[in-house]
Amino acid sequence: MTARSEVPDHHAEVLERCHEHIISLGKPVVLSQMLPLFAQAEPQLTREIMSEANRMGVYDQYMIPVFGPFDMNGLIAFGFAEAIPEDSREMRRDLEAAAASHHNQMVRHFVSNETPIELSGRESDVLTWIARGKSKSEISTILSISVSSVDTYTRRIFEKMGVNSRVAAAIAGVTQGLVKP
Score class of each variant (00 low, 15 high):
Arg47Phe: 03
Gln61Cys: 13
Glu16Met: 08
Met34Ala: 11
Glu13Ile: 11
Met106Ile: 15
Ala83Glu: 14
Ile139Asn: 01
Ile64Glu: 11
Phe80Arg: 07
Val66Ser: 00
Val66Met: 01
Gly26Tyr: 02
Ile22Ser: 01
Glu52Asp: 08
Gly133Trp: 09
Val7Asp: 04
Ile117Tyr: 02
Ser120Phe: 00
His10Arg: 12
Ala169Glu: 00
Val66Asn: 02
Ile142Ser: 05
Ser135Cys: 10
Val174Thr: 13
Val126Thr: 07
His10Cys: 09
Phe67Cys: 01
Val167Phe: 10
Thr115Leu: 14
Glu20Asp: 09
Val147Ala: 14
Thr154Ala: 08
Ser5Pro: 09
Met72Trp: 06
Ser24Pro: 05
Arg92Cys: 06
Glu42Ala: 11
Leu75Gly: 06
Ile142Pro: 01
Arg17Lys: 14
Ile139Gln: 02
Lys27Asp: 05
Val107His: 08
Gly79Arg: 02
Asp60Phe: 00
Ile117Lys: 07
Met1Gln: 13
Ser51Leu: 07
Ser148Val: 10
Phe110Thr: 05
Phe70Asp: 12
Val111Trp: 12
Pro65Asn: 01
Asn113Phe: 15
Phe70Val: 13
Met50Gln: 07
Val29Tyr: 00
Pro28Gln: 06
Gly121Tyr: 01
His11Tyr: 15
Glu13His: 12
Ile130Arg: 00
Gln33Pro: 08
Lys27Glu: 07
Val107Pro: 07
Arg4Gln: 12
Leu178Asn: 10
Ile84Glu: 00
Gly68Cys: 01
Ile49Thr: 02
Asp151Trp: 03
His21Leu: 06
Ser149Pro: 12
Pro69His: 04
Leu31Phe: 10
Phe38His: 01
Asp60Glu: 04
Ala3Gly: 06
Tyr59Pro: 04
Ser51Asn: 10
Val174Leu: 12
Val174Tyr: 14
Val30Tyr: 02
Tyr153Ser: 14
Arg155Ala: 14
Met106Cys: 15
Asn104Pro: 05
Glu123Cys: 02
Ser146Gly: 14
Gln40Gly: 08
Met106Ala: 15
Ser51Tyr: 05
Ile49Cys: 03
Glu42Met: 12
Val30Pro: 04
Gln33Phe: 10
Asp9His: 11
